[in-house]
């Protein structure tokens, strides 16, 4: 595996008395697109804020390009592009002003990448970003990120508030950009279908810990939903079974185990599973299966 761009070791954080997570550790290898998934309140934005240096964790360490984020040298920071939740930008500027402003900070600034996207925007030249729609603002944010030509992109909920057209634009641009330039991307989003089209690896967080970290392809190949008629028998609660539920006469559970293994476990537990059906899932269903419905 190539050397990690992001290394988080034993991260722990509390908000007051409330524990967010404890001893969280993960790495993001170079050249990979990693998506952070989790329900609301599991610590996704907390993690992004820690990565961005806007939050001091209660314990643990976070390194980007081998440097502690909070004491990172400015030169290293030129290699990181950050998209804040809501596509926050200097809304008091116009698209020209904001480009002129950012260009001076980044030595590898690619003006054409920015204006290539801006040409698609139907806005007046002097229109301030604050007067643009949510989608148009996201396009400006995307253009700035691409123009920065950073080695690492950190995107917090990049699809928030966007209609399908802008979301598709984002996903396609980012995917092409990441593949062609071997960039590393770390992102979060609530629209898991978009993540599925974009990410190579995923981390699924639950309250207080990481559930899984693996390539998306491997997740979708191995994680299945199993349905069967239990006939009133008690389905065993084991770590290999996720989100076990009985609705009416039908039971469902999720597992990484093979159909044969699952059947074996059920039969040993005395659960009738003659009609056991296994189906592979898309990423959204896999996420629901791992984390459960509310």
């Amino acid at each position: 595996m190539s050397d990690p761009v992001i290394e988080c070791r034993n991260l722990s954080h509390h908000y007051g008395e409330r524990l967010i997570y404890e001893n969280l550790s993960f790495e993001v290898p170079r050249g990979r697109v990693l998506g952070l998934l989790g329900k609301n309140g599991t610590g996704k934005t907390t993690t992004i804020n820690i990565l961005g240096g806007y939050l001091e964790p209660s314990a643990g360490q976070c390194l980007i390009f081998g440097e502690e984020i909070r004491s990172m040298r400015p030169e290293t920071r030129t290699r990181i592009a950050l998209l804040i939740e809501g596509h926050v930008q200097y809304a008091f500027m116009t698209i020209e002003e904001i480009e002129r402003f950012y260009a001076r900070f980044y030595p590898r600034w690619n003006r054409d990448a920015y204006y290539g996207l801006m040409e698609k925007l139907k806005v007046a030249p002097r229109q301030r970003i604050s007067r643009m729609s949510c989608g148009q603002r996201s396009q400006v944010a995307l253009g700035l990120i691409l123009a920065q030509n950073a080695d690492l992109l950190v995107l917090d909920d990049f699809s928030m508030g966007l209609d399908p057209g802008y979301r598709r634009l984002f996903v396609e641009y980012l995917r092409d950009y990441a593949r062609s330039e071997e960039k590393t991307i770390f992102l979060t989003s609530h629209i898991i279908q978009d993540m599925e089209k974009l990410v190579d690896d995923c981390i699924v967080m639950d309250y207080g810990h990481i559930l899984v970290q693996m390539p998306v392809g491997e997740l979708l190949e191995t994680f299945r939903r199993y349905t069967f008629t239990p006939g009133g028998a008690q389905i065993p609660e084991i770590p290999e079974f996720y989100s076990t539920a009985v609705v009416g006469a039908q039971a469902e559970l999720y597992s990484f185990e093979s159909p044969a293994t699952v059947q074996g476990v059920l039969e040993r537990a005395g659960v009738p599973c003659g009609d056991l059906q296994a189906e592979t899932l898309n990423l959204e269903d896999a996420f629901i299966g791992l984390t459960g419905k509310y």
Partner: peptide, 14 residues
């Protein structure tokens, strides 16, 4: 507004 200071503090400048 909208915690835009994050953008400012993220810029590659001390």
């Amino acid at each position: 507004q909208q915690n835009r200071l994050k953008l400012t503090l993220h810029l590659p400048f001390l």
